[in-house]
Amino acid sequence: MTVRILAIDDSPTMRSLVARALRGAGFEVFLASDGVEGIGTLADADPHLIITDVNMPRLDGFGVIEAVRTSGSHSGVPILVLTTERGDDLKARARRAGATGWIVKPFEDDQLIAVVDRVLGR
C-alpha cells in the first residue's frame, strides 16, 4: 500500500526538496504552499502523515496542527513540524499544539526518511 504524505511549506525549494526525498523513498507526496491550502487538501490527500513548515502566510504550522487535530476524520494523523529552530521553546510549543514530532532544517534525505519511518512505524 502506498503511504500518502502531505507536505506543507511556502518555500518552493523546501517543498521540492522534501518531495524529492519522500518520493525517492516510495511515498506518495501531496504538496501545499501554505496552511490554508494544506487544510483544503486534507480530504483529497487523506494523508497518513503531514509534514508542515512553521512560518507560513495565511495559516502557520501551529494553525495547521490545530485544524487537523480538530478535523474529526483526520485528527489522529501524525504531524511533523519542519523547523530551523532546535531550541526547547519550539519543541514545547509544538508539543502543546499537538505535533507528533519535528524535523530540524537542514536535514539529510535519510534523516527525514528515518523520522518519517519512525513516526509511521515502518
Binding site: 500500500m1 500518502r4 518552493p12 506518495e28 507526496v29 504538496l31 504552499s33 487538501t41 487523506d46 494523523v77
Partner: peptide
C-alpha cells in the same frame, strides 16, 4: 483505518491535480 485501508478515497486524477504544484 487510515493506514490499513487501500487508497480508496481520492481517485488518481484528484491526486495528480493536488500533487501538481499550485
Amino acid at each position: 483505518t487510515a493506514i490499513a485501508e487501500p487508497a480508496s478515497g481520492p481517485g488518481p486524477q484528484a491526486a495528480r491535480a493536488v500533487a501538481a504544484e499550485a
